[in-house]
Design a protein around this nucleic acid. Structure first.
Lengths: 129, 129
DNA sequence: TGTATCGTACGAAAAACATCGTACCTTTAG
DNA sequence: CTAAAGGTACGATGTTTTTCGTACGATACA
């Protein structure tokens, strides 16, 4: 047989799609209404725009939904971490030819990375020994 | 007067634009022909597509060019590092709410980050003391 | 000198993304 | 029962990004 494992390469979410994912990651499975309200805390979006977007996300297999009630509940198919890892991986490959340490150096050299952040990173590394 | 300093926020390069930038970063100032050839090592692109893309990049102020010869030479306006830092910053803000250490953890947890990479990072941190 | 080659300019089509209006179905309160 | 409120479906439109065809100017060289 060809394959029985879940197809692993979901299409890369677009910008608007990411916004929606972030709401779902932060607040868990939600209705369109809820997501749209959250989005509107940051910028104006029409309800049906968000609805459409979430329907597309569902078509793409990035979200699934519980249709048992009229108010459908949307849920990310992949865990937050997994998706982020995927995006990060792509980012590292694209900009740093896959070198994580190169990215690191940039991160540490960036003035916007606070001393506190750096300390946290060191602690993290120590705890990994 | 309004401003005499160089406008600092160049528009975010798109995907296709990044491909071109990477060639210029890697090989230095180049002609369209050269860039296009490089791109075609990875995927098929028409010469005029690349040309157009590079003209747009120039309009946007991301590239500048030397037109003194018929074969124009294109050069990134901003240094590679600066642009990457900008992109990285956006990435961290978008996906990790600005927390570099969060990104780090993901980087370190990623199986694709080799032991060797981790060692490099530690060395880097130590040298920063 | 004329024709093949290699370059730029640029409009426009194609594709990808994002937004919205309208139709229509369900639920609920009166 | 019915009207209002709130939900989904989905085509149409707008925008941005990407790709390409065509026109035309420079150069080289037979």
């Amino acid at each position: 047989m060809k394959s029985n494992q879940t197809e692993n390469n979901l299409p890369e979410p677009t910008k608007a799609e990411l916004e929606i994912l972030q709401v779902l990651w932060e607040f868990g499975p939600s209705t369109v209404r809820f997501v749209n309200d959250k989005l509107n805390e940051q910028r104006e979006v029409n309800y049906t725009s968000t609805l459409k977007q979430m329907q597309i996300l569902t078509e793409k297999g990035i979200l699934k939904r519980d249709e048992s009630q009229m108010k459908h509940i949307y849920i990310p198919v992949e865990a937050e971490e997994k998706t982020k890892v995927q995006l990060l991986d792509r980012f590292v490959n694209t900009l740093y030819k896959g070198s994580a340490s190169q990215l690191m150096m940039q991160l540490l050299g960036n003035e916007k990375t606070s001393k506190q952040e750096i300390e946290e990173i060191k602690r993290l590394l120590d705890s990994m020994e």
